[in-house]
Amino acid sequence: MAYRYDHDLEFLRSVPNESLNDLVNLFKEKANLTQGLSMNDKYKRYYPDHQKYIERIMEEIQLFGGNSFSNLFRLNKGVLYREILCDVCDKMKVNYSKYADVKQIEQDLLIKILDDHISKLGPRELEEFLKELDLVDKTETAISYNPQAANAILQTAIKAGGFKSYVIILKTVNMIWKFLFGRGLSLVTNATIARIIGIYSGPVGWAITGAWTAVDLASPAYRITIPMCLLITKLRIESQQNN
């Protein structure tokens, strides 16, 4: 295998090592059929200085985009990130355009995950949901929210980018990490971010957890590619926040 230049992954070269920990751990803990990354010489020599073997990490991303059979017909090369993301969106039944910018497709994936399950919340729970994400005034009372209104607020915040968009993806990915792996993201070194994430015992947690009860994760590939795409979405927004 060799890394195929991928415009949509190149931003990872500027991501700090500690921010790459969850991505590396995902491959180490869940991709145990290949052990490709942990057997790499640069990994063995430089871990946890992930930037010293960042191309090997990006190669691992591409590797899990295709199964071993199809990789043989790609001259032992993996799949570009856009193709992986579109496959995940198809799996999650996301309404998206495959010709859109990758950032837009990632936003559509995030919106779908949240939208699928806010429809199951009542008006009071929707209000709590939006307040927990800091999308409405927490001092407001006696406001009736419905799923359509909540979805419109979410879409506006996510597509606007900036810090609120970052908070939404951060909380979403953190909850999914807890659901899938039994722990949150590796963010304890940042007190501000840890405070933003919170405990997740309310409607946000219920909605996001519910997203995964309806998804067939029996396939080893999807157990990696779905959380992987969400984590890359989080890293992309995070890198833009830091620029």
Rank of each mutant, 00 (worst) to 15 (best):
E140V: 01
V94I: 03
Y145C: 01
C89P: 00
Q241S: 13
T156P: 03
E60G: 04
Q104S: 14
V188G: 10
L170I: 02
Y46I: 02
M92A: 13
Y46T: 01
A218P: 00
A211I: 01
D134W: 05
I176V: 14
Y222P: 00
T189M: 11
V167S: 07
F179P: 00
G65I: 01
I176G: 13
G161M: 05
I237F: 14
L37M: 06
Q107L: 06
D115H: 15
K159F: 09
D41G: 06
R45E: 15
H117F: 10
R74H: 11
N25G: 02
K30C: 10
Q240R: 13
M228Q: 11
F69T: 10
A211F: 03
F181G: 02
P220E: 12
D22I: 05
L9G: 02
N190E: 11
M1C: 10
A157M: 06
R45W: 12
Q241M: 15
P147M: 04
L9V: 03
N242G: 08
K91V: 04
D115T: 13
K234H: 15
T156D: 13
E55F: 15
R124N: 10
G65K: 04
P147F: 04
Q107C: 08
W177F: 15
M228G: 04
V15Y: 04
N67E: 12
R82C: 04
L26N: 02
I105H: 05
A152S: 12
R4Y: 10
G202N: 12
L75A: 14
E55A: 09
A221I: 09
H117Y: 11
Y200P: 03
N146T: 05
V24E: 11
I118S: 02
H117C: 10
I226V: 14
V94S: 04
F129S: 02
D8S: 07
L26S: 03
H117E: 15
C229H: 00
